[in-house]
Design a protein around this nucleic acid. Structure first.
Length: 428
DNA sequence: TTTTGAGTTGTTCGA
DNA sequence: GTCGAACAACTCAAA
């Protein structure tokens, strides 16, 4: 039995190839887990359901879908299908590890093993370590070692036989929730197509153009990587020379780095990685919640912030550079907990990945791995002038920005307030 | 053990 | 308009 989770592809799939080794019949399974569905926004769910349908197609319609808690559903399916083993791609996140350990315990009672093969990363969390065996806490050092260790090539296809036992009860893949936006084309084939398009037209200029939100200069691979529709080692294998290629590899290394940090510090999904920052004074009262609501809706009065927040609501995606700007605004201009912003992002981002998301937010808040100078505060007007000089990005998402709208806070005032709070926290 | 160099992404001010 | 300094100090990583 092959239990799919965030690896919704058939090609270059170590766990699937292990399950089907020597011509074994593979029963492909996906569990729709309420714990993951419940906090997800509509675009995110729609993309997942569509990708499940695409996966089912490439499995010849054999995918067995069930709703429920995997700790109950997986052992039950194992018995119903008389499977001798359950194979998964390893999950290194806090929830995934707890879930898999519970499933493993239940399976053990029937003498069946939960077998993990492969990970969603070029290098699995826990494998890149310092000379003394401890994990890295600084990206650049991690990156050097990550390059030195290297990663394997994509796996060649093998013959696989998928099998759904006759009469086995299956739940239908749910209908998409109502959304009024275009999502990326779902599925494994679309992932490869998008990647081919980016390699042909984008990768060479990636390092220069990626910071301009008005032009489609980023790879748009994040949703595909999030759901495992393609594996990063395939992308790395296709890279050549040049600064754009090197920059893209570095971004994949960031993805591995943050997964590694979360693996070693599972609590950092919810808490400050640097606990000395716990003392920082944040606003959490009713007025703060009202400010947060304005931020989520894209009504702050700062055009670049509002454009990003509206793009997120409308499409389930936001340009990377703009993510930093809106995050800085929530944390440093509104003085709100980064967790509030992180939760909103995870709800709405089709590509929302716990490790990258939470640690990206901790970077913005200065509570994470970065030796972040606390005085690094993004100026929304300055960022807009530098990165969207013609206002193309802003106009697309905030048509009323031609009229002057009142800003909810004064950046100059709030910047000073943020610096004051940080200084107090660090003890000066 | 000690030392040394370095750390994603910024902004403002004054010369 | 451009450019360098200041904004601080701490921790990490490797020699």
């Amino acid at each position: 039995m092959m239990w799919f989770r965030r690896d919704l592809r058939v090609g270059d799939h170590p766990a699937l190839q292990y399950a089907g080794r020597g011509g074994r019949d593979v029963v492909p399974v996906f569990v729709i887990d309420p714990a993951l569905v419940q906090p997800s926004g509509a675009p995110r769910l729609a993309f997942m359901y569509r990708s499940l349908r695409a996966l089912d197609d490439s499995l010849g319609g054999a995918l067995v879908v069930r709703h429920g808690d995997p700790a109950t559903v997986i052992p039950q399916l194992m018995r119903e299908t008389n499977s001798s083993e359950v194979v998964v791609s390893r999950d290194y996140g806090p929830y995934g590890r707890r879930r898999d350990s519970a499933v493993s315990d239940r399976l053990a009672k029937f003498d069946v093993e939960l077998i993990g093969r492969g990970s969603p990363y070029a290098l699995a969390p826990g494998t890149v370590r310092k000379g003394d065996g401890t994990p890295y806490a600084i990206f650049t050092a991690f990156y050097k070692m990550w390059q030195r260790v290297g990663h394997g090539p994509p796996l060649a296809d093998i013959a696989l036989k998928f099998h759904c036992p006759q009469g086995l009860p299956r739940d239908p893949i749910p209908d998409d929730p109502a959304i009024d936006c275009e999502l990326p084309e779902p599925g494994e084939r679309a992932a490869h197509q998008r990647w081919a398009d980016f390699v042909a037209d984008g990768l060479d200029h990636y390092d220069i153009r990626r910071d301009t939100p008005a032009i489609p200069a980023t790879s748009l691979m994040s949703p595909y990587l999030r759901w495992g529709l393609v594996h990063p080692r395939q992308l790395l294998a296709d890279l050549g020379d040049g600064p754009g290629h090197a920059m893209f590899a570095k971004e994949l290394a960031w993805r591995d780095f943050y997964a590694d940090v979360l693996f070693h510090h599972p609590a950092s999904a919810r808490e400050n990685l640097q606990h000395k920052m716990d003392a920082m004074h944040l606003d959490t009262d009713a007025a703060a919640r009202a400010r947060f609501a304005k931020w989520t809706q894209g009504n702050t009065g700062y055009p670049i912030v509002d454009a990003g927040m509206r793009q997120l609501l409308a499409t389930g995606w936001m340009h990377n550079r703009v993510r930093m700007i809106v995050a800085s605004f929530l944390v440093k201009d509104l003085h709100l907990p980064w967790q509030w912003g992180a939760r909103h992002f995870m709800q709405h981002l089709v590509d929302g990945d716990l490790a990258s998301n939470q640690h990206g937010w901790q970077w913005a808040a200065g509570t994470g791995t970065d030796a972040a100078p606390y005085f690094r505060v993004f100026n929304p007007a300055g960022q807009a002038a530098r990165l969207d000089p013609d206002g193309d990005y802003i106009r697309r998402w905030v048509p009323e920005s031609a009229r002057s709208t009142a800003a909810m806070v004064d950046h100059v005032v709030e910047r000073a307030e943020a610096l004051r709070r940080y200084q107090t926290t660090i003890g000066r």
